[in-house]
């Protein structure tokens, strides 16, 4: 089984260090995905985003997601906490595999699962000084069907 790296970080993410951490002689493909803070969302001008996280469960969840990728895939993934300016990396995922197909698939899998499962919350700060917590995906308990769930927003 591949050894993975999964971490929540209050410091800027060193994306090249993540790539170096995953690649092994058996690998022929490395994919680096970096999510960055953009300056516009839902028609509003964004200057920064603050990320809040429940760190112990978030790190367990990241490690679990990495472990769900195929055995020949290595994953190094970090997600930021704290206030990030436009252009800063909020999440970085380095994936290495013997061939590109499984590397691309694993990279996509990890980011999509992060969107659905990672206990992280995003507060946007706008040009006009206002700020707002964004809506997201409801988590589920294994017997939680007895309370309401609104429709899932677009990821």
């Amino acid at each position: 089984m591949a050894a993975h790296h999964a971490k929540l970080s209050a410091e800027p993410i060193d994306v090249t260090a993540l790539m170096r951490a995953v690649v092994q002689p058996k690998d022929g493909a490395v994919i680096l995905f970096v999510g960055v803070v953009r300056n516009r969302n839902d028609g509003r001008d964004v200057v920064a985003v603050s990320y809040d996280a429940f760190v112990p469960l978030a790190e367990r969840t990241l490690a679990a997601i990495a472990a769900e990728t195929p055995a020949e895939v290595s994953v190094a993934v970090e997600h930021r906490t704290g206030r990030l300016a436009v252009g800063e990396a909020s999440v970085a995922i380095a994936v290495a595999a013997p061939h590109r197909v499984e590397a691309y698939e694993a990279s996509r899998y990890v980011i999509e699962q992060i969107k659905r499962r990672l206990p992280v919350w995003k507060q946007e700060h706008y040009v006009d000084g206002d700020s707002e917590w964004l809506d997201g995906c409801c988590l589920h308990s294994s017997d939680g069907s007895d309370h309401d769930h609104a429709p899932e927003p677009r990821l």
Partner: peptide
């Protein structure tokens, strides 16, 4: 709250 779950540091917990 209706759209929240409860958890510990280890996992999301069941309602029951």
């Amino acid at each position: 709250l209706a759209r929240c779950v409860f958890a510990t540091a280890e996992a999301i917990v069941k309602e029951s």
